[in-house]
Lab assay of single mutants.
Amino acid sequence: DAPDEFRDPLMDTLMTDPVRLPSGTIMDRSIILRHLLNSPTDPFNRQTLTESMLEPVPELKEQIQAWMR
């Protein structure tokens, strides 16, 4: 099983494109984008959230890719 820090906190699946929300939570980009289609909010604190506020986490993405090899 993947380490917890590699798993999306909402869907508990392996992240492939991790992004940091303004709240500091790291999620998979595809999952948070799907959530934003229904509700333009951070799913953990209900603060306003837009796609432009998502910050890529390239170092975590590299760690996940290395773990998958």
Results as ranks from 00 to 15, higher is better:
55 E>H: 09
65 Q>R: 12
35 H>Y: 11
33 L>V: 12
26 I>A: 01
50 T>Y: 12
68 M>I: 15
68 M>N: 07
37 L>H: 11
48 T>E: 13
16 T>A: 10
2 A>W: 13
12 D>V: 06
23 S>L: 03
56 P>V: 07
66 A>Y: 09
47 Q>E: 13
59 E>G: 11
39 S>D: 13
63 Q>H: 08
12 D>P: 03
57 V>M: 14
26 I>C: 06
65 Q>D: 15
35 H>C: 10
47 Q>G: 10
19 V>Q: 03
54 L>H: 01
3 P>E: 04
66 A>V: 09
42 D>N: 06
27 M>Q: 02
34 R>L: 13
61 K>E: 06
52 S>P: 08
11 M>S: 14
65 Q>P: 07
23 S>Y: 03
25 T>E: 08
53 M>V: 05
53 M>Y: 04
66 A>R: 13
27 M>D: 00
64 I>R: 00
22 P>D: 01
4 D>M: 15
14 L>H: 04
34 R>T: 11
4 D>I: 15
39 S>R: 06
38 N>G: 11
12 D>A: 12
62 E>D: 12
24 G>Y: 03
61 K>W: 10
17 D>M: 04
41 T>G: 05
19 V>S: 01
63 Q>C: 11
36 L>A: 00
11 M>R: 08
35 H>S: 06
9 P>M: 07
10 L>Q: 05
28 D>S: 04
52 S>E: 15
13 T>Y: 07
40 P>F: 09
31 I>S: 13
5 E>A: 13
48 T>C: 13
11 M>C: 15
49 L>A: 00
54 L>V: 04
5 E>Q: 13
32 I>E: 01
28 D>I: 10
43 P>W: 05
61 K>T: 07
2 A>Y: 14
55 E>N: 08
37 L>P: 00
31 I>L: 06
20 R>L: 08
28 D>Q: 07
50 T>E: 11
33 L>H: 06
30 S>N: 11
37 L>A: 14
13 T>R: 07
15 M>R: 01
11 M>W: 11
22 P>I: 04
54 L>G: 01
40 P>C: 09
20 R>S: 06
62 E>V: 11
47 Q>H: 10
36 L>N: 00
9 P>L: 06
10 L>G: 02
49 L>T: 04
6 F>T: 02
29 R>K: 12
15 M>Y: 02
35 H>F: 11
16 T>R: 12
38 N>H: 14
30 S>L: 12
32 I>T: 00
20 R>K: 10
47 Q>P: 03
39 S>E: 12
14 L>G: 01
7 R>S: 04
29 R>H: 06
26 I>V: 11
39 S>K: 07
23 S>N: 07
48 T>I: 13
43 P>G: 02
50 T>W: 09
63 Q>Y: 08
26 I>P: 01
52 S>R: 10
53 M>C: 05
43 P>S: 02
55 E>C: 08
29 R>D: 00
17 D>N: 08
17 D>L: 04
18 P>A: 01
9 P>D: 05
51 E>W: 10
49 L>C: 06
61 K>H: 07
15 M>N: 02
62 E>Q: 13
14 L>F: 07
39 S>H: 10
44 F>A: 03
60 L>S: 00
55 E>G: 04
12 D>R: 15
59 E>D: 12
10 L>V: 09
5 E>R: 14
54 L>Y: 02
50 T>F: 12
26 I>E: 01
23 S>D: 07
68 M>F: 11
15 M>I: 08
60 L>Y: 02
3 P>F: 05
15 M>K: 02
46 R>D: 14
38 N>Y: 14
36 L>V: 05
1 D>M: 14
7 R>L: 12
21 L>V: 03
29 R>S: 07
63 Q>T: 09
42 D>R: 04
1 D>T: 13
6 F>A: 02
60 L>Q: 00
8 D>K: 06
26 I>L: 04
28 D>T: 02
27 M>V: 09
60 L>N: 00
27 M>H: 04
5 E>T: 10
58 P>Y: 09
25 T>V: 15
45 N>V: 06
16 T>E: 12
29 R>C: 07
12 D>S: 12
31 I>A: 09
60 L>V: 05
66 A>H: 12
16 T>D: 09
27 M>W: 04
15 M>Q: 01
17 D>V: 04
22 P>R: 03
25 T>K: 14
49 L>Y: 02
11 M>F: 11
24 G>T: 03
32 I>V: 09
39 S>W: 09
25 T>M: 15
36 L>E: 00
51 E>P: 13
34 R>Q: 13
44 F>D: 02
29 R>M: 07
69 R>C: 15
52 S>H: 12
28 D>G: 03
47 Q>V: 10
10 L>C: 13
38 N>L: 13
37 L>Y: 10
50 T>H: 13
31 I>F: 05
40 P>T: 10
59 E>H: 12
19 V>F: 03
37 L>E: 13
35 H>T: 03
63 Q>I: 11
49 L>W: 03
